[in-house]
């Protein structure tokens, strides 16, 4: 582990303290964190796996062992596929929009003529990311409202009234309407991460490129992107993991409706566990959700490690 190699204990080796004493000291130091992690993360995780093999409800003590029946049912449940489809859709749009457009905005703000106003734009784009999701959800519910909402009113004003629509109420458009809200909210956040990475790029690289006759587009593709490659990958992975953990946006804006059209894995899990009292089935949802996010977390860890080296 890189952390161990860098630790002060390692450097002190052979001087005053002996290494096996150090080891017990190190263990002692990580013990509180380890205990907390074990009891609040790892133990429930394992328990969740076990629970997914039972049929039980939260307030009855009897658990019936049904082996893989919850999983069989899960893979036959049309709601599961709607949820996966919505999560994937959300991830795709978010990666394109937040990581793509965020990158373009960041690069534009780093340009010389805009740099003077960067503080202003940075703040404006970042503000949505610090507002509570519940507030944003209710706000956008009003914006989309077909009777008093601003979206349809704007369309009317632009003589595009034929496109006016019941955005959140139609099962064909509801999920896209929700996805759009998240892009509005988080593009600024990702942009800020890019900006931080870009500001670490030495200015000499751009100067010498410019002397060699490279234009801004060439600089962007040949200097900016390769220099912040790791940040791009990290942002992408964060966005994908976030997309699979998605819950509040859906819960606040449509609660999975109309029908089941905006259900995602987390809301479907919540619904089966806390509404329908099928804790075992909810646990099966949780296992699938865990596996997906776990795979992406591994990728993220691997990528961030390569960047350290």
């Amino acid at each position: 582990m890189t952390a161990e190699e860098d630790s002060p204990f390692r450097r002190q080796e052979g001087t005053s303290l002996r290494s096996n004493q150090n080891r017990s000291l190190i263990l002692l130091y990580i013990l509180p964190a380890l205990l907390l992690m074990t009891s609040f993360i790892y133990y429930p995780l394992v328990q969740n796996f076990i629970y997914s093999f039972y049929r039980w409800s939260a307030f009855s003590s009897s658990k019936v062992f049904i082996a893989f029946d919850n999983y069989k049912r899960l893979f036959l449940d049309p709601v599961f596929y709607i949820a996966v489809k919505n999560n994937v859709l959300y991830a795709l749009v978010s990666v394109l929009c937040q990581c793509g457009i965020g990158l373009i905005i960041a690069a534009a703000l780093e340009e010389k003529f805009l740099r003077r106003y960067q503080g202003f734009f940075r703040t404006v784009y970042f503000i949505p990311a610090v507002i509570s999701m519940t507030v944003i959800g209710l706000l956008w519910q009003l914006i989309y409202n077909p009777n008093i909402g601003i979206v349809n009113a704007m369309l009317d004003l632009l003589k595009l009234g034929r496109f006016a629509h019941e955005w959140l109420g139609d099962s064909n458009t509801a999920i896209y309407a929700i996805i759009l809200v998240s892009q509005w909210q988080y593009t600024g956040y990702i942009m800020l991460l890019y900006l931080v990475a870009m500001q670490k790029i030495p200015a000499e690289l751009y100067e010498s490129a410019r002397i060699d006759g490279a234009g801004p587009t060439r600089c962007f593709f040949s200097i900016t992107i390769p220099q912040i490659k790791e940040m791009i990958v990290v942002c992408t992975v964060i966005t994908i993991i976030g997309s699979f953990k998605l819950f509040d946006e859906i819960y606040v804006m449509t609660a999975g409706g109309p029908g089941r059209s905006t259900e995602v894995l987390a809301t479907a899990m919540y619904r089966s566990g806390f509404r329908n009292d099928e804790m075992g089935y909810a646990a099966a949802f949780a296992v699938v959700l865990f596996l997906i996010t776990f795979i992406f977390t591994l990728i993220q860890l691997k990528v961030s490690r390569t960047s350290e080296e």
Partner: peptide
């Protein structure tokens, strides 16, 4: 019914 029943809150309709 009014337009957009599936995307409107009950409380909002009390107002209107």
């Amino acid at each position: 019914f009014n337009k957009g029943v599936n995307s409107t809150e009950h409380n909002m309709m009390v107002e209107t």
